[in-house]
Amino acid sequence: MAIFGSRPEGIKMAPVVQALRRHPDWFETIVVSTGQHREQLDQVFAAFGLAADHDLAIMQPRQTLTDIMVRALSGLDELLARERPDLVLVHGDTSTTAAGALAAFYHKIPLGHVEAGLRTFNKYNPYPEEINRRIAGIIADIQFAPTPRAREHLIAEHIDPGTIFVTGQTGVDAALTVLAQPHTFTVPALRQVDFSRHRVVLMTAHRRENIGEPMRNMFRAVRDLVDRFPDVLLIYAVHLNPAVREIAWPILDGHPRILLLDPLPYPDMIHLAARSYMAMTDSGGIQEETPSMGVPHILMRETTERPEALEAGVILLSGTSYEGVYAAGERLLTDQALYQQMARARNPFGDGQASRRIAEYLGWYFGFTADRPEEFTPGR
């Protein structure tokens, strides 16, 4: 049983579900959506040709973290009691992840955690994701760590090394699959963008810990960057969270070279990222995807649970102050040597085979194959 509820989880779990379903003689794969992000998750299902076998439909307007956890845990408790899967799979760090892990634990069902072992060691940044990851990590029977660094974090927390398997990042699988397909933008506004005339900067910003003054600082800085560089066109896919939109529109709306859009269908988002000059986000997942496209990335956060990106030189960590965001943006827009260095850096997160490795590992785990599959090694 694969449980997910948000757009990022759906994107990163869709290739895993597809890989598992290539082995119908091994697995019956059941997909459960909590519906934590209703409209945005529906886009992912459509992009990957998937459908939920069970939909808890928990989303409510202006839901709190407590609302999400209580409704997800309650719905999953009833579902697990009825279905009794042999294994529950959760992904990453959302409230759905933590609820799925706890529900599996309460029913004494083995748990696999995809994208295990990412840490900032700051429980409030990212919030609540750092603690959601740790909850899943404590409970999981199988730790699918995306990188060797993630494995090291788990071992430092006294996780049995025999339960850890390094896979690479399933989000890279999803992005490379979509990029390999011919694509015409489905959003009309994107079809009007002249990529030969503008340096397009793709932006996303939605993190809960950034809502408020940090987000205002970020938005003021990017608006001033667009004013400073007349060839820059900023495209911001604005999260549906009303608290984000109430900050974004007063600062960014009305500028002739700032395009505010609703969240994009995943294929549009990936092909837009690939055609962009650079990305400026507070996202976790996009910083794993853009290195495969040769697109430098400014991460507008105070911390990152993906230090491999900093070490590989594929992102700049700007912080959330006006000065930090503006300086990082100005640097990438003026320093061509730095830009080319970042664009040519190797992606440390994956090679497009993570989902296959997970399916093969589970085939070995359940005794369908004799040999434990080979793990992901960055740079190989």
Score class of each variant (00 low, 15 high):
312 A>H: 12
324 G>D: 00
349 F>G: 06
331 R>D: 02
346 R>I: 13
357 R>A: 03
337 A>H: 11
335 D>Y: 02
331 R>S: 09
307 P>Q: 09
362 L>Y: 05
346 R>F: 13
301 R>A: 08
303 T>E: 11
314 V>N: 08
365 Y>F: 13
310 L>E: 15
330 E>G: 02
344 R>N: 14
349 F>K: 05
321 S>C: 12
358 I>C: 13
311 E>S: 12
325 V>C: 02
340 Q>I: 00
327 A>I: 06
323 E>H: 03
348 P>K: 06
316 L>P: 11
362 L>V: 07
323 E>F: 02
344 R>A: 15
354 A>T: 00
347 N>Q: 10
338 L>E: 07
334 T>A: 01
329 G>T: 03
365 Y>I: 06
326 Y>Q: 08
345 A>S: 14
330 E>F: 03
319 G>M: 12
362 L>H: 05
320 T>E: 11
324 G>P: 00
354 A>R: 06
316 L>C: 14
363 G>S: 01
361 Y>I: 00
315 I>N: 13
323 E>Q: 11
306 R>G: 02
301 R>F: 12
358 I>V: 07
350 G>H: 08
352 G>D: 12
343 A>Q: 13
318 S>T: 01
303 T>K: 15
328 A>N: 05
365 Y>A: 15
331 R>K: 09
353 Q>G: 13
337 A>R: 13
343 A>E: 09
317 L>F: 15
328 A>E: 00
346 R>Q: 15
337 A>V: 06
352 G>M: 10
364 W>Q: 01
337 A>F: 08
305 E>L: 12
363 G>K: 05
350 G>I: 12
320 T>H: 06
364 W>K: 08
320 T>I: 07
322 Y>I: 10
352 G>Q: 11
313 G>E: 06
311 E>T: 10
318 S>V: 01
321 S>Y: 08
308 E>Y: 14
315 I>A: 14
300 M>P: 10
301 R>H: 09
309 A>E: 09
308 E>S: 08
349 F>L: 09
313 G>W: 03
308 E>L: 04
322 Y>V: 07
330 E>Y: 02
365 Y>G: 06
317 L>H: 14
315 I>G: 15
353 Q>P: 09
313 G>K: 04
337 A>I: 04
360 E>V: 02
312 A>T: 05
304 T>C: 10
340 Q>W: 13
314 V>M: 12
330 E>H: 04
356 R>G: 11
320 T>R: 13
310 L>Q: 14
342 M>Y: 00
343 A>F: 02
309 A>W: 02
355 S>W: 01
357 R>F: 06
336 Q>S: 08
326 Y>H: 11
358 I>N: 09
333 L>M: 03
338 L>K: 02
351 D>G: 01
300 M>T: 14
304 T>V: 04
302 E>A: 11
332 L>A: 04
347 N>Y: 13
305 E>C: 11
312 A>I: 05
313 G>Q: 07
349 F>P: 14
320 T>Q: 14
362 L>N: 04
316 L>H: 15
318 S>E: 14
325 V>W: 03
341 Q>R: 11
357 R>I: 05
326 Y>S: 01
349 F>V: 03
363 G>R: 15
324 G>K: 07
352 G>F: 11
354 A>I: 04
330 E>L: 00
351 D>Q: 09
363 G>E: 00
363 G>Y: 03
339 Y>M: 03
355 S>V: 04
358 I>D: 10
